[in-house]
Amino acid sequence: MMLPLIDSQQFHNIDYTDNSFQRAEYDNCTFTNCNFSDADLSSVIFIECEFDTCNFSNAIIKNTTFREVNFIECKFIGMQFQDCNPFLLSFNFSNCQLQFTSFYKLKLKQIKFDKCNLIQVDFIETDLTNAVFDDCVFNNTVFRQSILKNSDFSTSNNFIINPEINTITNAKFSKENVLGLLHHYQISIN
C-alpha cells in the first residue's frame, strides 16, 4: 500500500494523543513541541525529519521507519525501538531523556547521543560500532553482548559495561570514567 507523501512541512504544538496521527511518508519535515504520548505511529515513514521538544512516552512504533532522523530535547519513556523497521535505520539524539527504552538487537552503527540522560535503557545485543556518547549520563543502563567497537564514552559517566560480555575493541574511555568497566569485579578503588 502506497502511503501519501508529506514533504517539507512543519508541525507545531500538536497533541497527537487527541488527534490520530496520519499514516504517511514524512520527508524533510519538522515537528516542534508535539505530544506523541501513547500515539500509534506504526508503519509511518520518517525520512530526514527533525523532532524538537517532543514527547514520545509509550508511543507505538511497530514497523515505523526512521532514516536520518534527529531527536532534539525529546522525552522517551517505554519506547521499544526494536519494534521499528530496521532497514537503513538511522537516528541521533541530542539533549534527550530516555527512560525504560529498548534498542534490543538493533544495528546502530555511528549513532550519536549528545548530552542525553539514559535511565534503564536496554542495549542488549546491540551493535553500537562507532557510536558516540558525548557528555551523557547513564543510570542502570544495560550493555550485554553488545558491540562497542570504536565507540566513544570518553566524556560520559555513570555507565557500567562488563568487558567480558561486550565487545569493546578500540572503544574510548577517559581515566575518570574507566571505573565503569571494573564494576562487575566488585572491588574498591581509592
Rank of each mutant, 00 (worst) to 15 (best):
F103K: 07
E25G: 03
I124H: 03
S37D: 08
Q110F: 14
Q80S: 09
A131Q: 14
T30Q: 14
I77S: 03
L98I: 12
T64Y: 03
E125C: 06
Q10E: 13
I72L: 07
N28I: 05
I14L: 10
S42E: 08
Q97M: 00
N130G: 00
I61N: 10
E73V: 01
L118D: 06
L98R: 02
N19G: 10
F51W: 10
F103M: 11
L108F: 12
S57V: 04
N70K: 15
F76Q: 11
R67D: 05
E125K: 12
D127P: 12
Q99K: 10
Q97Y: 13
D52L: 15
M79T: 03
Q10D: 14
I77K: 03
F71G: 04
C96A: 00
S43M: 05
Y26D: 08
C116R: 09
M79F: 11
Q10V: 01
F71L: 09
F76A: 12
L108N: 05
S20Y: 14
I119R: 06
I72C: 03
I60Q: 13
D38N: 14
F36K: 07
Q22V: 07
F21M: 11
D15L: 01
F46L: 11
T53N: 13
T17A: 03
N63C: 11
N117M: 10
A39R: 11
A59N: 05
F51H: 01
N117K: 06
I6N: 09
F46Y: 14
I45S: 07
S43V: 02
Q99T: 06
S8T: 07
H12T: 08
T53F: 08
C29S: 09
T30N: 15
F36D: 00
N63G: 12
F36L: 01
L128W: 07
V44H: 00
T126G: 06
L118N: 02
S43E: 13
F93A: 03
K115W: 05
E125D: 01
F91M: 08
F21Q: 04
G78T: 09
F93G: 01
S37C: 14
Q110I: 11
